[in-house]
Amino acid sequence: MGTAETVENTRLVEVVLPGVVEPEGLRIQQREIPAPGPGQIVVRMEATGVSFAEQQMRRGRYYDQPPFPFVPGYDLVGTVLTAGEGVTPGLVGRRVAALVKVGGWASHVVLDAADAVEVPAGVGAAEAETLVVNGITAWQMLHRKARVRSGGTVLVHGANGGVGTVLVQLARAAGLKVIGTASARHHEALRELGVTPVDYRAEDVPARVRELAPGGVDAVFDHLGGRSVVDSWRLLAPGGTLVSYGSATTRDNSGSKQLPVLKILGRVWLWNALPNGRHAYFFNIWEGRALRKDRFRARLGTDLTQVFQALQRGDVAARVAARLPLTRAAEALRLAESGTVAGKVVLVPDSGEGESASPAL
C-alpha cells in the first residue's frame, strides 16, 4: 500500500449534518483516518464546494439524500495519500477530482479509485473544485443534451450561479449567443462575459426574452422548476431544447421533496409526446450509474477532462466566490445561500494552506 501521508495529518475532520437544521447546527467531529480497501484510495481534501445540493439537504429537500446524520459535500479535489490493493501505485501523490454526492466535507475521503479524475498540472485545487459538479453539469447539458449549433441563442437562468457561470462561458466558447437571468448587481460581470442580462426581479422575463429572441431560443437551461419551467418551454424556437436541472423555487417549501421533481418529469414526458419537434430533458448527473457504472465513469472522466482543458485554454475562468476553512462550513453555507456572491464558495483545509478570502461580491 502506497502512502504520502505526513505526521501532522493523523486524524480525519468532518462536518456532519445531523438533521434539518440552520447552518449553525452543523457539527464538527474527528475520527481515525480509515485505510483504503481493495480498489480504493484515500484522498486528502484540498478543496470541496458548497453547492445548491447542500442547501437543499440541510432542509431535508434534496430528493434522494441519505438519512440523517451524514457528511455532506457533493464533490472535492485533493491529493491521493494511500491506495488499496489493485490500485496503480503511481496514483499516490497525484491531485484528483471526484464527484461523490455526499462525504466531501471532510479532511480525508475514501473513494473508489475508478471514480477519481486526474487534475492537470498547473490547475489549483480551489480552481479545479469550482469546475467539478458545476463543470460536468454545464458541459453535459450543453454538449450532450442541448447540442445547439454555433450561432444559436440560449437562455440560462441563474447565469451568475455556480453552474450558470460555467455554462455561459462554455456556450460563448461554442459560438452561441447567451441571454442570462440574474439580479442587477451581477449584470456588469455578465456583460463582460458576452451575456445579455435580464433582471428577473425587475423585468417580465418571458416578455423580455421574446423581445431579444422573437423567434424563440434554441435552448433553455432552467434550474428553477415550478412555473419557470413552463415559461421556459414556451420560449423555445421550433426544434429547441429545454434542459431542466432542478427546482430551486421550491427550496424552502414544506411537504414532499420528491413532488417538485416528479411534476417536472411528468411535464417532460408530456412535452416530448407532442409532435412539435421540440425536446425536453430533466438532467440528472447520476443518470446511468446504477446500470452501467463503467460507462458512467468513462463519460464523467472524459467530460471533466474537457472542462479542465477549457480552463487551460482560457475558455472558462474558475470563479471562486470565497475560500473558508472546513470548520467554518456554517459560515460558508450561509454565504452561498445569501445570493450575494458570483461563482462558488469553496471549503479548504484548516491547516493554513487555504486561508480564508474575502467574498467576491
Rank of each mutant, 00 (worst) to 15 (best):
F282H: 11
Q312G: 00
L300Y: 02
G314Q: 07
L270P: 00
E287L: 10
T302I: 00
R313I: 04
V316Q: 02
A310E: 11
A280S: 15
A298R: 15
R297S: 03
N284A: 04
L304Q: 03
A336H: 14
R323S: 06
A290N: 11
L270R: 15
L311Q: 06
P325L: 14
N276H: 08
L265F: 01
R319A: 04
R328S: 13
S338N: 10
V268P: 00
V307F: 00
R295C: 05
R292M: 05
Q306T: 10
L291D: 14
S338T: 11
Q306V: 01
T305R: 11
L326F: 04
L324I: 09
R295F: 05
L270E: 14
L265I: 12
A336D: 11
L324W: 06
F296D: 07
H279T: 13
Q309P: 03
T305H: 00
L335Y: 03
K293G: 01
L291C: 01
T327M: 01
R319M: 07
L300F: 02
P275N: 10
K293Q: 13
K293H: 09
G266A: 07
G314V: 13
A342E: 14
V316I: 14
V320P: 01
A310C: 07
A317H: 12
E331D: 15
H279L: 04
L311T: 03
A336Q: 15
D315S: 10
F296A: 04
D303Y: 01
L326C: 10
L304S: 02
E331H: 08
V341N: 08
L333R: 01
I285M: 14
V320W: 00
T327F: 00
R289G: 01
A273E: 13
G266E: 11
R328N: 12
R297H: 08
L335I: 09
R289V: 05
A342C: 06
E337H: 06
G314E: 05
A290F: 03
A310V: 12
K293N: 10
R313L: 03
A332F: 01
A336T: 14
A322F: 04
Q312D: 00
K293D: 12
Q309W: 08
R297G: 07
A290C: 01
A317P: 00
R295H: 13
P325A: 12
Q306Y: 00
Q309V: 13
F308T: 09
F283L: 01
W286Q: 14
G266F: 04
N272H: 04
A290W: 10
V320C: 02
F283E: 10
R328A: 12
L324V: 09
T327G: 02
E337V: 09
W271I: 00
G339D: 03
E337D: 15
A318T: 08
L326N: 09
V316D: 00
